[in-house]
Structures are given as structure tokens and as C-alpha cells.
Computed example of a mutant assay.
Amino acid sequence: MLTADTDVSTARAVAARAAPSLAILEMPGRQGVGFVASPHGFLVTNLHVVAGAEEIHVLLADEQFLEVEEVVALDEKRDLAVLQLPTHGLEALRLDGAAHPGEGDVLFILLPAGGGMLGLMETRVHAVQVLDESLTFLELEAALPEDASGSPVLDASGAFVGVATCAFADGRPVTIVIPSRYVVPLLEQPGSRPLSALMLVRPAASRERQVPTHPISLLEGCATDGVEEIALAIMQAIQLGAPAYNRGDPETCYRLYERTAEQLLQERTDCPGAQAALREGLQRCTRLDDADSCAWALRDTFDGLLHVIDRWLQAQAAFARMSAPKSYLQ
């Protein structure tokens, strides 16, 4: 899982320092991953990994097999859970709440590799994503297996950077990192709740996206300026609507998307294919029961249009290069 240009000694050092903290979570009918984040027995994982669990047993790297009895902290917004193990003096990760990796930085994900072995996945930060004022996360280049959510992410020095999470965007899995600065406060102000608190959290279900795939011919006859203006209007709507949705306000998100679609229907008569796609998205909303579903229906519509617009613009640029006059050296 390491690239050819990886400094092997660095990778081995990272793995050696972090390996004792890795934990496998055993729950009825499923497994998960977490890590020890404090010698006091605090174990961190993604909330969706343990949501709804009636019992949790933890296998540590030193082969201790422990039963979780208490919940220390839950953060539904950032998909984090801290559990209390019934023992102290455990090997823990070196936490660094001030770590701020940037685009292109090399990171390592420590995860189980089967047969009692450990894996070290090397990757890079693809992008820093800001959802709103309360959540910024890292999007990684590597594809994380779904059952490895909750694994620790480390930098080249072995410092803890965040929690690896398998999420979904545009109907496809993406690997994100919930940064360490959201984890550290949960450890500094611990509480105590029974394990039954997890039963109140619904297990996360990946939403089935219905992003349409349009042929490039959808935009036949459209002017480049018009297509670019449609894309800009859609992107601006998403930039405003997505934070509203993430704050728990799907109604505002849906109404913003709806107004954008209706405005484009009125103004972009020069691009009937795009109008037809927007009209279909609005009609789909009339068959749905709530603002949450309607917000996603229009987001699917917008994403489908952005995808075909991107392909159309690339094709236009390629055609322009082919048609450009050529000059030859004599």
C-alpha cells in the first residue's frame, strides 16, 4: 500500500509508533475499527461504526479482549464517538489537535489487513473541504474500505491527524478525515453514559443517489457563455444550500435549489436540453414527501448537469485546438 517513492524507514517508524493503539471492534453481525487515544482507556471511532450497537467487544494489539461498558462522548455532527475501556495504562496515539495538513501532504492510515496483520496505507490530501463554520474535513486520494472507517490517520512524524471515514459523494465512496482538532475536546471534557446511549443514534445509511448521466448532445446548440452561466448558477446554489442542509435545515436548502432551477428555466431558453433536465428534477420533487428528499433530488439534478457541462466544455476546448490554424517551422 506504499508508493514507490515512499521513504520505507519513515513508513515503518509511523507504523511502529501507532500499531499498539489500533483496536478491532466486535459487534453483533459486524466489525469496526478504532484506536486508543488516551492511557486512561478512551477509544475513538466513527459514530456510525457503533451506532445502535447493543454490545461492543474490543480486541487490542496486545491481544487483550475487553468489553465496552460506557460512552464517554458522542458528536453526531462530526461522526465521532469516544468509548471507555475498562482498563488503564494502555498504549495510546500521540495526539496533536493543532495538526493542519494541506493539499498534497502525505498521510498514513493504519488499518487491519486481515489475519491479525496491520496495514499502512499511504495517501495524499486531495482537497481541504469546508462544509460550514463548524466542520472542515480533508478529502484523500486513497479509497478506504468501508469496514475500515474509524482508523487513525497519521502524518510522517507519527502524530495523529484525524479519523479516517468512508463517506459518499455523488453516489461514489470517498475517503475523508475528521481532523484531530474535533477529537481532542471530546477527550478533555469526558462524560459518562451507559452503552445504551448508542441505541438512540440511528445507524447511518448511505443515501442512494440518483444522479442522471446525460449525453453531451443534451447541450447541443447551446452557446459556451450560456453553458458556463448555468454551471456558475448551480455551483453558487450548492455553495449556499449545502451548508444550510448540513446545519439541519433541508427546507432552506431545498427552496434555494428550487428557486435556482426555476430561475434558470426562465432565463436560459437558449439551452433547452439543460432546461429539460431541470424541469425533470422539479417534477421529481412533486412526487416526494419532504424537503430533505426534495433537496437531494435537486442536488442530483444539479450534479448531473455539472457533470455533462464539464464533459461538454472539455469537448469544446479539444475541438477548438483541433481547428486552430497550425504553423510549421520551415
Rank of each mutant, 00 (worst) to 15 (best):
S157L: 04
P179M: 02
A205C: 11
V8F: 13
E139K: 04
S38H: 14
Q266G: 09
T213I: 06
E69C: 07
I176Q: 04
T213M: 03
A13L: 14
M322C: 09
L83F: 11
V33N: 06
A13Q: 14
D290R: 01
G191C: 06
D170M: 10
A197D: 10
R30S: 07
H88Y: 09
T269V: 14
Q129A: 07
L195T: 14
D7E: 13
M121D: 09
V183I: 07
E133D: 14
G32K: 01
D75F: 01
Q314F: 06
C285D: 06
E220L: 14
N46A: 07
E251D: 03
V58K: 00
F42R: 05
L306F: 08
L135C: 09
S327N: 03
Q314G: 08
G191P: 07
G158Q: 12
D75G: 00
Q330D: 15
L264S: 14
A13F: 13
R279V: 11
L80E: 08
G273Y: 13
A277I: 10
S293D: 15
R255Y: 13
A274S: 13
A16R: 14
V128L: 05
D270F: 11
L198Y: 04
E70N: 12
R30T: 07
W296V: 14
S180D: 13
L2V: 15
L264V: 11
C253Q: 14
P152N: 09
V227F: 00
E63F: 05
V174R: 06
F160P: 02
F108I: 03
F168M: 15
G304H: 04
H214L: 03
G114A: 04
P152I: 10
E220D: 15
D75H: 00
E63L: 03
M121Q: 09
A297S: 03
M121P: 05
A61M: 03
L80H: 03
